[in-house]
Simulated assay, not measured.
Amino acid sequence: MKLIKNIRNSAIKVLQSEAEALQSISERINGDFEACVEAILESKGRVVITGVGKSAIVAQKIVATLNSTGTPALFMHAADAIHGDLGMIQREDFVICISKSGNTPEIKVLVPLLKRLGSKLIALVSNTQSYLAEHADFVLDATIKEEACPNNLAPTTSTTVHMALGDALAVCLLEAKGFSSEDFAKYHPGGALGKQLYLTVADVVPKNTIPVVSHDSALAEIIVEISSKRLGATAVTGEEGQLLGIITDGDLRRMLQNHSDITKVKAQDIMTANPKTIDVQEYAIRALNRMKEYNITQLVAMDNGNIAGFIHIHDLMKEGIV
């Protein structure tokens, strides 16, 4: 039990230490950060992010975030840069150099070369008095009090703060560009996330047949329609084909409880009027959200006022959205 308690306490201490560091960093978002975002927005170049060791891993994550949110970015390892990879940098590019100390040998070699190329240099650094910070055009202050490591050695809090500042930078650029969910979908077409962002009701509805009965249809016709189309429901239409209501399996069960003479029952007697609908051009994920909101399992899909079919929660489950 003592070991378990120590493990728990250690984990909590790490999380609290990193949370405090993030709170401290948020108070140091200054004019340099704002100017950095504005300069990148005005630039015609790309964002190239570099670093060594753990900073290189953080750089790759920030590159991925920027690319997925509409800001073209490249990763360049600082050690490889001085052995040929500098060729990927163009004059219009912004280079973000990530370093805790800002004084590593690779950084001291790389910085003058970057300045000679004419690219703007952004220092994401935990030491604002370092060589890197002194020679950068913009400084993103990632100063921390100490690492979460008990020896104050292993990059823990520092890498967390660096990554969080990268997220802040990416989101600020995203918002400034008006990057929408539709834009996001272009970069994430695969998997469940992609489907949530691009799959529409129209993509799902054609897979289903359309159960429809007239408002004066008899019970036998209603049962056959629901059973044959296998969707557990049918739409009810008026004389001009307009949607009047919906009848579900549940409505049929309630009808048996409430009507003593079922031979005279018509569709209009047992239907739910003004059923919940959704336009075929809406995203399928919105259909799911509407089903959850009203605690139902299907919606009538409409296309310019006409019944286009039904979208059932099972359809969304098959698509991997649920």
Rank of each mutant, 00 (worst) to 15 (best):
S217C: 05
L197K: 03
C97I: 03
K177I: 00
L121P: 09
V205Q: 05
I246M: 15
H77L: 04
H215Q: 13
Q16N: 15
K207G: 04
V161S: 05
F75T: 14
K44F: 03
P211C: 00
Y187E: 10
I311C: 07
A164T: 07
T272R: 01
D183I: 04
G53K: 06
A202R: 15
H312P: 04
L316F: 04
G70Q: 01
K120D: 09
T200W: 10
M291Y: 13
D261N: 11
N67I: 06
V47I: 13
D216C: 13
D93K: 04
G241D: 07
A301W: 09
G118T: 02
K54W: 09
E20Y: 14
L124I: 00
L121C: 01
P206D: 12
I144F: 09
A21P: 07
D261A: 11
T209E: 14
N304W: 14
A142Y: 01
P150W: 02
V171Y: 14
N127K: 03
G118H: 04
E42C: 09
I296M: 05
K120S: 14
E221F: 01
S214R: 03
Q281L: 10
A220W: 11
D216R: 15
K120T: 06
F33V: 02
S119K: 12
G194S: 12
I7H: 10
N6A: 11
A73W: 08
Y198S: 14
V204F: 09
A11G: 09
E27I: 02
A164V: 06
D167C: 00
T69A: 05
L173H: 00
F179G: 08
E225Y: 02
T128W: 01
G70V: 12
A235L: 08
I89E: 13
A218W: 12
T234R: 08
R286F: 09
I311H: 06
T65V: 03
M255F: 04
S126D: 08
K292G: 05
A39E: 00
G238L: 08
I313F: 11
T209V: 13
V280K: 10
N274V: 09
T272I: 04
A308H: 01
A39Y: 00
Q242P: 02
T143L: 01
S24R: 14
L252Y: 01
G250L: 07
Q281T: 13
L256R: 08
P275I: 07
L256Q: 12
L252T: 05
E239N: 15
S119I: 08
P72S: 01
A273K: 11
P112G: 03
T297K: 14
L140P: 01
H77D: 10
N103W: 06
R253L: 08
C149T: 12
